Amino acid sequence: MAEKPSNFLKRLNPIDLGAAAAVLLAAVGVIWSPKLAGSVARATGGMKSVLVTVDVKGIPSENPNALLSKIRADAKTSLVIRNQPHGSVDIKQVTAINRRVVVVLPSGVVTTAPDPNASGFSTLDARFVLRGDGQVSKAGVVLGNQALKIGSPVELDGATYRINGVVSNVQIINP
């Protein structure tokens, strides 16, 4: 014999309703994940190609030139923003930055000269230009659910290196 609907509703416990709501919220959370949001943004044109310039300074390295050559050959690096992995980005360009010192001449003229200590210390100073896909929002460019702005600390992670740097430029590439 079938129960009347009113008897069924009377048997529902508030705990059962809470459990059903928790399951429903969990299902919505799984469906509306960051990967899905990125896929939807890519499909609707919300994702744009972005060039990010990252400067690194004073990174100890036995052979900075060999490290730069290896990084160029890899052509990809993993990007970590505020300790959150973003994923892999393309390396468009890597250039060594030569340290310079400010010198005041006896005549009072201020000039710059190559750092004489650079040859004694084996450190890496470089500028990385990275290309990735990000969303453009009111808060700026968002990569990996993190707003990326000039001055943001980032980490470049490869097979043989983990380098801390600072974003020095963010540029949206128009198609």
Results as ranks from 00 to 15, higher is better:
K4T: 09
K4R: 08
K4S: 14
S6I: 01
S6D: 12
N7C: 04
F8H: 09
R11Q: 13
R11N: 13
I15E: 08
I15V: 11
D16Y: 01
D16F: 02
G18L: 12
A20G: 06
A21Y: 00
A21D: 04
A22Q: 06
L24Q: 03
A26G: 05
A27V: 14
V28N: 04
G29W: 00
G29V: 00
I31S: 04
I31A: 06
W32A: 14
S33T: 10
L36Y: 02
L36V: 11
L36M: 01
L36S: 05
R42N: 10
A43F: 11
G46K: 01
M47P: 00
K48M: 09
V50A: 02
V50E: 10
L51Y: 06
V52G: 10
D55T: 14
V56E: 01
K57R: 15
K57L: 10
P60E: 07
S61D: 15
E62T: 09
N63Y: 04
N63Q: 10
P64G: 12
P64H: 03
N65F: 14
L67H: 01
L68H: 01
L68F: 00
L68Q: 08
K70N: 10
I71L: 05
R72S: 09
A75P: 06
K76W: 00
K76L: 08
S78F: 02
S78I: 04
S78T: 13
L79N: 05
L79G: 04
R82H: 12
N83R: 05
N83L: 09
P85F: 12
P85T: 04
H86I: 12
H86C: 14
G87W: 11
S88F: 06
S88G: 04
D90M: 08
D90A: 11
K92H: 06
K92W: 01
I97K: 07
R99H: 07
R99P: 12
R100G: 06
R100A: 15
V102E: 08
L105F: 00
P106A: 03
S107L: 06
S107A: 10
G108A: 12
V110A: 06
T111H: 04
T112A: 11
P114M: 01
P116C: 07
P116V: 03
A118W: 02
S119Q: 15
G120V: 09
F121S: 07
S122M: 05
S122Q: 13
T123K: 10
R127I: 09
F128A: 02
F128L: 02
F128S: 04
F128P: 03
V129R: 04
V129Q: 07
L130W: 01
G132P: 00
Q135F: 02
S137I: 09
S137E: 12
S137G: 12
G140Y: 05
G140R: 02
G140I: 03
V142K: 08
L143Q: 04
Q146C: 10
Q146E: 13
A147H: 09
L148K: 13
L148V: 15
K149I: 05
I150R: 06
I150G: 03
G151E: 02
G151L: 01
G151W: 00
G151V: 04
S152R: 03
E155N: 06
E155I: 07
E155T: 15
L156G: 14
D157K: 15
G158L: 09
T160D: 15
I163P: 15
I163A: 10
I163Q: 02
V166K: 15
V166T: 13
S168F: 05
N169M: 07
N169G: 15
V170G: 03
P175H: 07
